[in-house]
Every structure is written in structure tokens, then in C-alpha cells.
Design a protein around this nucleic acid. Structure first.
Lengths: 151, 151
DNA sequence: ATTGAAAGAACCCCGAC
DNA sequence: GTCGGGGTTCTTTCAAT
């Protein structure tokens, strides 16, 4: 990824529906080149996918929380494989420190959070304990990540 | 948002570049209607934006971590306003419990994480203390959220 | 790899239901 | 609000550099 790829990727992660013409002009290459770069990044894995970012409240996913999960080594992989299948589990990270894993969840409300933990998390054999941090307000929740070497 | 809106939104958050023709067929409405629904959801705020999801490793943002931040009430709003301006801060949540805020950060490596905390977090007057959980592996990191009332 | 131009596909507007 | 058609814009392909 040279500077043009990075500029293109950075624009597209912010404005995914930018037309090739606008993109090409902003970055300073021809339309064909911009298209070719995008195609190459998409097939090469630098661009993982394209997504509409929904309003969580509008689709009944207004409750966001982070769940720290302690697991035994035995059955750990199975538990992770099961967890990632659920839409409620938006992120699952193996973390360093006092806890084994950290999940980001979205559910409708506290009742459905409780139900999800009781039905799909706590029954997993490897899961020893969970600790839930509830988000009272998401001041920022962006899919945009810093792209190295810009500005 | 009726069932058609929710189906459309759910498809578009997974495949943001779905053509109107495919979208219409999958959901069971005409192309015109699909387009009209998308336009209404985008202008009404149900769809917040469109984004390419980049490969963090490819753009030099391979280190992911979660930072718990303790703040004083005095200067809290200013600190939050400052934090959200940085691309490294992908999420900032006001959380219930022992800590005030929870941030999701992405940086190049531990050195740039250290630099970011030292330069842009700890100097904020309201910030008392931070606790950092480093992600060793992101098993799932998806922008897709559960949409209520499907299936 | 980059480019311009032509062919193909997608989107948007609009009048009718 | 939904639909289909026509005009416009965009994307893709391709031959040439």
C-alpha cells in the first residue's frame, strides 16, 4: 500500500459511497486508477468489506455493553467459536491481564442482555465468570481507524 | 421502520455494496421501492453512514486496546470532547461501575499507544487514572449489529 | 501500473396507480 | 407508498502507453 492506496482507503472508510470520480479527484489520480486500486485492495484483503452503519436505537440494539469473560483453558476454543456466531457479539478479543476475553455486545435492553448471558454465555463449559460494563452513553462509536502515514 | 426497512438495513450493514436490484430481490420489493427506502433511512438517521472496513494490520493500526479511564467531574466534558477528536479513539463510552469511561483505541504498536496515552490522555486535567487492556487477538470485530424482529 | 474512451450497469427522477 | 420506464451518472472493460 503506497500513499495513494492509503489515501483512498482512508477516504473510503469515512465515506464508503464516494463515487470513483470524486475519489480520484481527491486523491489525485485518474478514475481508472482509483477503481483499479480499490479493486486490488478489496481482493487483496486490505479492504475487508463494505457496511452501512446503522443507528442502534432505530434497530432495537440500543444497549451496548462490554463483558469481561474468565475462561478455563479447556474448552476455550469451543466457547469462542460459539460466541462469535451471535450477532449480539460484535467483538470478541483475547486480552492480556486479569481476564481472558473481552466482548462487546449489543442487545435491545437489559432484559435481553440478561437473557443472552444466561442462555448463550454462562452455559458454555469453559466460562467461569463474567463481569459486565454497561455503556450509559456512546460518545463515539466509529468504524474509522487511524491510517498510518497521512498528513 | 417496518419489516422491509429492517430487512434492507440488515442486508446493507453486512453487504454495503449490494446493488439495488439484488437488494430488492432479496427483500421482495421493486427496485424503486428499495431505493426509496434506503434514501429515507439515510436521511432519517436510521442509516448513519457508509464505510469500507479496513484491515487494521494493513494500515498500521494493528494494536487494539481498551482503556478504562477514571475522571473527576470537573472538566469531564472537555476531556471527552478532546478525546473523541482523535482517530486513535474509535469508541468512547460512559460506563456504569467502578470506572468513568471506556475507550477503544487502535494504534500502530505499543510504543505509539504509550505515546498517545502520554500526550493526549494523561495530560487532560480531568483524567485521574487509566487502566489498559491490550487485545492479543481480535477473534471478531464486526460493525454488524443485531436487528430486532428478523427471522 | 496508468490512462482515456466506449460499453454496460446502476441510480434517480417522474408520472401513474 | 409503490411501481416501471427513461434520462443521467457511474462503473467496468479494453487497447495503448
Amino acid at each position: 500500500m503506497d500513499i495513494f492506496d492509503r489515501k483512498i482507503a482512508n477516504r473510503l472508510q469515512r465515506f464508503g459511497r464516494l463515487s470513483s470520480a470524486d475519489l480520484a479527484q481527491e486523491v489525485g489520480v485518474s478514475v481508472s486508477t482509483a477503481n483499479e486500486r480499490v479493486r486490488r485492495m478489496a481482493s487483496g484483503g486490505e479492504i475487508r468489506g463494505w457496511h452501512a452503519h446503522l443507528n442502534p436505537d432505530a434497530v432495537g440494539a440500543g444497549l451496548c455493553c462490554f463483558v469481561l469473560v474468565d475462561m478455563t483453558y479447556d474448552g476455550e476454543a469451543d466457547a469462542c467459536a460459539a460466541l462469535v456466531t451471535h450477532d449480539e457479539v460484535m467483538e470478541l478479543h483475547h486480552v492480556a491481564g486479569a481476564h481472558s476475553y473481552m466482548m462487546k455486545l449489543r442487545t435491545r435492553d437489559t432484559a435481553s442482555l440478561q437473557a443472552f448471558l444466561a442462555e448463550h454465555v454462562k452455559p458454555l463449559p469453559a466460562v467461569l465468570r463474567t463481569e459486565t460494563l454497561i455503556s450509559l452513553d456512546a460518545l463515539k462509536e466509529s468504524p474509522v481507524m487511524p491510517v498510518d502515514g497521512l498528513d
